[in-house]
């Protein structure tokens, strides 16, 4: 049952899948990794974005990627608002923010999930586009074009965000606020506004990531639960706040998932990301490229 071809195919698909995981996780890498916000609702925001893309695709026949781009500004504003509420109620008051902050985002995630169920039902939803449903053949194995599209866009998105954070003025400000908030305050900058903006960016990225999510596979309202494991696994394994680490960790996760999927079958798939997350937390909590 073990063949090199099968393994090679799994690795190739795993790399494609991994880049996609990087795209859905970079937002969390900023909001949780850099800003230390316990953003458990990140995967719920992601699924919400997917449903937005689905709605646009369904009613106006817009290409999912364009639709994802279209909801990006909306998600940016949504992120600004979410951080403002979080800041005013938890970070500013300081005391006991841990427990209640986590519970707050957990509650938000649940509310989003139920609202999606009420609006769209529990059935699986998918989008239509010219590149969905076809695949390229390379001798033995086939690569679905939807995976290639997701891979290319995901890679572009991740690299773009990495460049933004390291080269632009605002990006450097965001990293500065993660490093030393107090020092930034002494320089006369307002760390809260920078963090709010960063959280907005982290949420805006989900517009595109959500489009990729529904391009790669059909979605359902409770999909966010599986992605809690995947996104947090990637971000923690990467080392908090490291974007290049995010890409590496996501590819490791993607390859691990496809290999287990080929070897042992789909029923073990949901546990992999969580198991890797636990292993990383237990063995090397600072991640691959931890700060």
């Amino acid at each position: 049952m073990f063949s090199m071809d099968l393994l090679l195919g799994a690795v190739v698909l795993g790399v494609l899948l991994g880049c996609f995981y990087a795209a859905v996780s970079v937002g969390l890498s900023v909001s949780f990794g850099l800003l230390d916000v316990p953003h458990v609702a990140h995967p719920a925001f992601l699924v919400l974005a997917s449903y937005g893309v689905y709605q646009l695709n369904e009613s106006y026949d817009i290409d999912p990627l364009v639709a994802g781009l279209a909801i990006t500004p909306l998600f940016f504003l949504f992120g600004l608002l979410a951080y403002r509420v979080y800041y005013e109620t938890f970070e500013k008051r300081g005391s006991d923010a841990g427990v209640r902050g986590i519970a707050f985002f957990f509650g938000i995630a649940f509310i989003i999930e139920v609202l999606i169920i009420l609006q769209f039902g529990v059935d699986q939803r998918s989008v239509s586009a010219t590149y969905i449903g076809k695949s390229w053949r390379f001798g033995e194995f086939r690569i679905p074009i939807r995976q290639l599209v997701a891979f290319a866009v995901a890679l572009g998105l991740t690299v773009l965000l990495a460049v933004y954070l390291s080269k632009t003025f605002m990006g450097r400000a965001i990293r500065a606020v993660a490093q030393d908030e107090e020092a930034l305050r002494l320089m006369g900058a307002n760390p809260v506004r920078i963090k709010q903006f960063a959280f907005g960016i982290a949420t805006a990225v989900l517009g595109i990531a959500g489009a990729l999510l529904i391009i790669v596979a059909p979605i359902e309202p409770t999909l966010d639960r599986a992605y809690i494991g995947r996104t947090f696994c990637v971000v923690v394994m990467a080392g908090l706040g490291s974007i290049s680490g995010t890409l590496i960790a996501a590819i490791i996760l993607g390859v691990a998932e496809t290999i287990v999927l080929t070897m042992f079958g789909a029923s073990w798939a949901p546990a992999i990301s969580f198991a890797m997350l636990l292993a990383v937390l237990a063995v090397r909590p600072q991640g691959l490229l931890g700060r």
Binding site: V40, A275, L281
Partner: peptide, 27 residues
């Protein structure tokens, strides 16, 4: 397993545990 984990890390670890055990029971 989680002695040294605090805050969100502990919480995520407990979700992870739930999913892993559920997967075992499913199989």
């Amino acid at each position: 397993l989680t002695l040294r984990m605090r805050g969100i890390f502990f919480s995520i670890a407990t979700i992870a545990l739930a999913i892993i055990i559920e997967t075992f029971v499913m199989n």
